[in-house]
């Protein structure tokens, strides 16, 4: 099912951020799909089989934590690496995200887009 072009699913409700992700990641050579809530995120994880998920935390319908929890319970989805990119920066949020199986946790405002792309590359390489 794997294609040579890596697929990245972005789950993020802010349109400006979404468009920046799409432009930045497509430029870096990834195939990008965007959804704006956790419910659709889980749906696309099952249907589209992404290689990596970028997950925001505060979203309508189903937030990032709930999504992560559900994904973690599903053996088919569990192995898809997930990076949390949120602007929530409390230590307990970070701990909770990592405990639910996220690979890493980034505070968006503190990273440049090239940094984010680099992190995605590193994660896909491992």
């Amino acid at each position: 099912m794997k294609t040579s072009v890596k697929r990245i699913l972005v789950v993020e409700d802010d349109d400006f951020i979404l468009r920046a992700y799409t432009a930045g990641l497509e430029h870096a050579g990834y195939e990008v799909m965007t959804v704006t809530n956790g419910e659709d995120g889980l749906k696309q994880m099952r249907a589209w089989h992404p290689d990596l998920v970028l997950l925001d935390l505060i979203m309508p319908i189903k937030d990032g934590f709930e999504t992560l929890e559900e994904k973690h319970k599903d053996p088919a989805l569990k192995k898809i690496p997930t990076l949390i990119l949120s602007n929530l920066g409390q230590d307990d949020d970070i701990a909770r995200g990592l405990a639910l199986g996220a690979k890493e946790y980034f505070i968006k405002a503190n990273y440049s887009l090239p940094d984010v792309v680099k992190k995605i590359q590193d994660t896909l390489d491992t």
Binding site: D14, F16, I17, A20, Y21, A23, G24, H27, N87, L88, G89, I107, K108, A109, S112, L113, P114
Partner: peptide, 23 residues
């Protein structure tokens, strides 16, 4: 403060892309 971070992130990332010459 937390709410302010999201638009600031967007500004930063678009500036990043312009500076990287993507468009």
């Amino acid at each position: 403060s937390h709410q302010l971070r999201t638009p600031l992130t967007a500004v930063r990332w678009y500036a990043d892309m312009l500076l990287a010459g993507i468009p």
